[in-house]
Amino acid sequence: MDLSVKIGKLEMKNPVTVASGTFGYGLEYSELIDIEKLGAITVKGIKKDPCPGNPLPRFCEVPGGMINAIGLQGPGVEGFVKDDMPFLRTKNVPVIVNMWGTSVEGYAETAALLDKVEGIDALELNVSCPNVKKGGSSFSANPDLMAEVVKAVREQTSLTLITKLAPNVPDITIYAKKAVEAGADALSVCNTVPAMAIDIEARKHVIANKTGGLSGAAIHHIAVKLVWEVTHAVDVPVIGMGGIMEPKDAIELMAAGATAVAVGTANFIDPTTPIRVIDGIADYMQRHGMQTPKEIAI
């Protein structure tokens, strides 16, 4: 049995990575699990300059998961390269850097800087963030604008380029096709689902930003449907994510067509989840007499 998969030029020894923003920069969970067992590590989103993030409270628990509005706090490319890359370079595991910007040019500049950093294997574009120059609506609200971002980044890097799609669009296949046309080697499906929680006794929003992104088990079946739609519309590998709590959830995303999967919110609840998922996929393949993870797709 061979568990390895390819995402663009990125070779993963198994189909399991972690979702950006739920695993820090690798170091945080390295005392608890052997991070070299992962197919890849995906780090918290960064942009060119440091970003302070949102005020507290930044998250709350809700049935089936959590809502977060961390606000993309990050150290900037320089801080990341100085403080976080040295540790990651000591580990025998590919690194996917999740990146974002507040303008098309911002994305391109960040990509150009990251392209030169030793030890990065792929870039994952988070397009679910506000376009500051155009009134603050998300890049993921407009397929052409999203494609502009992908194209601008593609021009700056030969690293494997993954575009991470937002779930809250009427037809995700339009985005998937545009991203691939603009040069994406792979797609991640999906980001958090916009959500809100109100404390009815305090009579105010629970998180300071008022709105946030829903993640965890609550969004799993949204992700399964979106992965199915995307993998049936385009011919690039898809990293499936959204509410993987148990190996069976990851296998379901792969059954829907995902080449690889990412464990997110579950890391907070049970840090051993990514390892259990790797083992669970191997068990499943064995039980079903499968030789490669590709065969899991129905």
Binding site: G21, L32, G53, L56, Q73, N267
Partner: peptide, 15 residues
């Protein structure tokens, strides 16, 4: 005493 999700420094929920 801040609300915490991960407890290990990974989520940036407790700054």
């Amino acid at each position: 005493d801040h609300r915490m999700a991960c407890g290990v420094g990974a989520c940036l929920g407790c700054i």
